[in-house]
Amino acid sequence: MNAQAKDEAIPKTLLIACGALARETLEVLRQPGMEALTLTCLPAIWHNRPEKIPEGVRQKIKAARAQGIERVFVLYGDCGTGGELDRVLAEEGVERIEGPHCYAFFAGQEAFEKLAEQEIGTFYLTDYLVRHFDRLMWQGLGLDKHPDLLTLYFGNYRKLIYLAQLDDPALDAKAEEAAQRLGLAYERVATGMGELGEFLAASARPATE
């Protein structure tokens, strides 16, 4: 089999992801064996407007199929859609990564449940949220202009857990600083890519007849 025929035998697969997962997903896609996967993202800010996610995903699916791409996978948890995303995916016949949100599939479903049980009042950050803490959290919630809102937003939290995908001392320091600014105890949990990596590896395998 020549190289062209070999490439044609690999099913092209599209990943539809939240923009907050783009960097980590691309990191995995650089690994050998991921050549059949391509990535498209919806705006990360839609986490503040989860009602936009289901229809946004549907439109991406339809656009992919119009281009002849039949294999589509979704990198979203439920992400506050109240089951609406799963309804859309069932209608379209598309599979998504398991879990309610990215915290769970980075940490692993069982591991995250244990963390949540240990301290209900826990606020979680991922690498993406640490990088963009000021824009998404501090400024996004208006705390830069109204610091008195801090108690309103975070008064019921006791701990901040940084679920770290990469080993980056600069991010560690920024996450710990975020905990201090929020007045929360700090803990770092190294997750790596967690179930995201496993899901991508499964998605890259050729479809069975």
Rank of each mutant, 00 (worst) to 15 (best):
H101A: 04
P169H: 03
G140S: 02
L136F: 06
D172E: 15
C18E: 06
A202D: 07
L26N: 12
A64I: 13
I10M: 08
E35I: 10
I69M: 07
E24P: 00
Q180S: 13
G93N: 06
C79K: 07
A63R: 07
G80L: 00
D134N: 09
Q139T: 04
E209Y: 09
D78H: 03
F112N: 03
R30Q: 07
G99S: 03
A44W: 06
R71T: 14
D7G: 05
R23L: 14
R49E: 15
V189E: 09
Q118N: 04
R87Y: 06
D167M: 08
I120T: 05
E91W: 08
G82C: 09
L14F: 00
A204V: 06
V130Y: 09
D86T: 08
A22L: 04
I53H: 03
Q118R: 10
H146N: 07
Y153V: 01
F154R: 07
G56A: 10
K60P: 03
R181I: 02
Q118E: 14
R158D: 06
R188E: 11
K12G: 11
R71W: 01
L143N: 02
G121L: 02
E91K: 12
I69V: 14
L26S: 06
Q180A: 12
L149M: 06
A3R: 10
Y186D: 09
F105V: 00
T38Y: 09
L125N: 12
N2E: 06
R131E: 08
A66K: 13
N48L: 07
Y76N: 01
N2D: 08
M137K: 04
E117V: 05
A204T: 04
F133Q: 15
D168C: 14
L152E: 08
N48C: 03
I16P: 02
L160P: 10
M193K: 15
R135Y: 11
A9R: 04
A179C: 02
A111P: 06
G121R: 15
W138C: 08
A204E: 04
D148T: 11
T13F: 00
C79P: 05
P100Y: 11
T126P: 12
E70F: 13
N156I: 10
L89V: 05
H132C: 12
G19R: 00
D86R: 05
E91M: 11
M193A: 14
E84N: 15
G80H: 12
T38R: 13
F106P: 00
M34K: 08
A185T: 07
G99Y: 02
G80P: 09
G83N: 12
E84A: 15
A204K: 01
V57D: 01
P11F: 06
E84M: 14
V57E: 01
E55H: 13
R49C: 12
M137S: 05
C102S: 01
R58W: 13
F105S: 00
L160G: 09
E98G: 05
T126C: 12
R58A: 15
D127E: 09
A17L: 04
G19W: 02
E27M: 06
Y103C: 09
W138T: 11
A201C: 06
L136Q: 07
